[in-house]
Design a protein around this nucleic acid. Structure first.
Lengths: 229, 229
DNA sequence: ACAAAAAGTTGATTTAAAACAATGTTAGAT
DNA sequence: ATCTAACATTGTTTTAAATCAACTTTTTGT
């Protein structure tokens, strides 16, 4: 982790939602003191159980957001990409993160003191509304995740995750940034079975696998499998 | 389902959070047109997939909130009691419920047109803040549920649900309002295994079971089981 | 009061997926 | 350039929990 510098929002190359709000008010622009921080691969961006100190905005890179479960077994809930916020879900209910975020590759993030965020949503109705929308999206996807993890067999869960990753990369062919183990944590499947499923789906000509490069060959079938397992 | 009457908030015997807000403004008091509705046991209060038309507040009785999963298998997320809101989670993201609510016993609910609720949170900052807090609580408990359902064995999940029900009833001894099947849907366990677990825990003197009356005899042990399975 | 349906119980069987074990491959550190 | 640790793969075994099947008890509607 390397702190780059305290940055001025107006000169930031990657202007975020928060800036959208604060640029309308000079006093806010002077008050916000965002810092840009670079994290290396595997660096912990925030840790489950720790106090929420900053609102964190992903400027570049990719990170995994996961819950640390029992016996050191994790469940990855989402992959975070630029323009995502970290910490959204933890702002209101608890002063502590109930999940961890770790960089999957070098990540540049913008950090804004949580007190400033809180002030903003206390004072600024539009901001709270925006926060809420993003909040709602997260909840909907978590609900879906409960069903998926609980009621689909491993083929169905695996198909789901492939579709998710493809959609995240906006491409049927994508570079898998996760290890086999992490892919397992995304769909709650053991590492060994992930390897077997990759081979199985490749055999069935549903996907192509070349090391970390995955290509979905038959999206329709994949959607079918996601539904019926 | 029986519509009682359009009721006036000021004369309501069970004043809710929404009233707290609107009583401060006369124009709101005139605009809100809440209706009280009584549902019989097993009546559907709201149905997954349907349009969200009302904010629903539980005035009396008990209901189950569940996601309808695959192959007609449900997962009960919470049991709703008086002073809970239904629909909270669905307000922002989608115009449709992503879960269903069914009365477990006769339920009286107060329904407020969703347009009014939306107006309220668009105009009223305090109201949106309150909504947010409740929202946050829900998310935290759903996160917990993901871990529980996914990583605990059936003994652990079962112990969890017993503790949840005890806490809900604010008593170590409580009348189980759920059927064995529904208790299964609460912890994602088959009906048969629920029966076996009830007998098992009774044998181990952790709980007492007399038909629908369940008494937790050894809460400490139950918490231990909830942790380690 | 009675039939029918729903709920509850118990034992035997099956199965999906994890765990175990062993080994090959790759990438990063010195 | 080589050593080491992390990552990936494959076959075998185990196991936890669901499913199946058969039966009893309770509740509900007429």
């Amino acid at each position: 982790m390397k702190i780059n510098k305290e940055i001025n929002c107006t000169e930031c190359e990657n202007q975020c939602d928060i800036f959208d709000i604060i640029k309308t008010q000079n006093d806010l622009l002077n008050k916000v003191k965002p810092i840009h921080v670079t994290f290396k691969k595997n660096d912990i961006i925030c840790k489950q159980g720790n106090t929420v100190t900053h609102g964190i905005y992903i400027v570049s890179g990719t990170a995994k957001l996961y819950i640390e479960g029992l016996n050191n077994r994790n469940i990855i809930l989402y992959i975070l990409k630029p323009h995502n916020y970290v910490g959204l879900l933890s702002f209101f209910e608890t002063p502590r993160y109930f999940y961890s975020v770790v960089a999957l590759e070098q990540c540049k993030v913008c950090m804004v003191d949580v007190q400033f965020i809180k002030q903003l949503y206390r004072d600024n109705h539009l901001f709270l509304c925006r926060l809420n929308e993003a909040f709602g999206k997260s909840v909907a996807s978590i609900m879906q995740k409960i069903i998926t993890l609980n009621q689909k067999n491993i083929r169905g869960r695996f198909a789901d995750s492939l579709l998710y990753l493809s959609q995240l990369n906006k491409n049927l062919s994508f570079n898998l940034i996760l290890t086999r183990k992490e892919l397992g944590e995304l769909c709650a499947i053991s590492e060994e079975n992930i390897v077997r499923l990759l081979a199985e789906f490749k055999n069935e000509k549903i996907i192509d696998v070349q090391k970390k490069q995955i290509t979905i060959l038959d999206e329709t079938l994949l959607r079918k499998i996601s539904e019926v397992g």
